[in-house]
């Protein structure tokens, strides 16, 4: 698929855990200010691929990659690339909400604080919580522990924490899979709202969710990129037989 305004360009990417090849020779680009969904059956390598995009896999000893991932003109796996700087600019929301066991307020301010944020913290907290559609629910108890929030609220707090950093890209790893249907709906609404300002890459095994929230969809199967295109086209007229089998529920 030809992308007009790419923010991330991936060329010939292989990802290995020890001897196992988890992602095989993927090449694709992520469109700026759009929502890109990565779908595929469990174990197809989609979370691995996502975590590679902001070097969260560095913490696994046996992990290694080859190929290039270009972000803003630079290879993020180049020898002089700094993972800390990359993660500041490419944020991440995890499968299970993981707020820090601190106050709601501190959960948001900690990232900006260590990264030398110069502006007003109160404003930033308010903006970020509003951005994550959580402000109204928590504005009176910002100093309470983040662990006192419900699961859905915790996940929106994690999103607020992420957007407080003003990242250029937000990676979401099945952000709603640990939530109940109502909270899921709220998170999806939020993604729809965030797409105006951010580039979002979301991994999901829920095809309806991919169809609802994304502009482009990438189908990954056993580490191989099978098909990549505009969501609407991919779900209505898939080009590959495997894609059709998967989205019609014949496997996976």
């Amino acid at each position: 698929m030809v992308i007009n305004d790419p923010i991330l360009s991936i060329w010939n990417l292989n990802i290995r855990y020890g001897q196992t090849l988890a992602v095989k020779n993927n090449s694709f680009e992520i469109e700026k200010n759009k929502v890109t969904a990565i779908i595929g059956p469990s174990g197809c390598g989609k979370s691995t691929l996502l975590r590679t995009l902001n070097r969260m896999n560095d913490f696994i000893d046996s992990f290694n990659t080859d190929g290039t991932i270009n972000f803003d003109g630079n290879d993020i796996y180049a020898a002089d690339a700094d993972p800390v700087e990359i993660r500041r600019r490419i944020g991440m929301v995890f499968q299970k909400p993981n707020p820090f066991p601190k106050s709601i307020y501190k959960n948001i301010t900690w990232g900006p604080q260590i990264n030398g944020y110069q502006g007003d913290m109160d404003t930033l907290v308010e903006e970020s919580l509003k951005g994550a559609a959580l402000w109204d629910e928590v504005k009176d108890r910002l100093n309470e522990s983040a662990l006192s929030l419900s699961g859905g609220q915790q996940q929106r707090l994690c999103i607020a924490r992420c957007i407080a950093m003003r990242p250029e890209v937000i990676l979401m790893d099945e952000p709603a899979s640990a939530l109940d249907p109502k909270s899921t709906a709220r998170v999806e609404e939020l993604i729809a709202k965030l797409r105006q300002d951010y580039t979002i890459v979301i991994v999901t095994h829920n095809m309806q969710q991919a169809a609802r929230v994304s502009d482009n969809t990438l189908f990954l199967y056993e580490g191989e990129l099978i098909e990549y295109g505009p969501t609407k086209a991919l779900f209505t007229k898939p080009e590959k037989q495997q894609t059709e089998d998967y989205i019609t529920g014949r496997f996976g």
């Binding site: 990264n115 944020y117 110069q118």
Partner: peptide, 16 residues
């Protein structure tokens, strides 16, 4: 977006 002052050099020094 840039209210962030780049302090990466100093932080990396502390880190190392």
């Amino acid at each position: 977006m840039n209210n962030f002052k780049s302090n990466i050099e100093k932080r990396k020094r502390i880190e190392s």
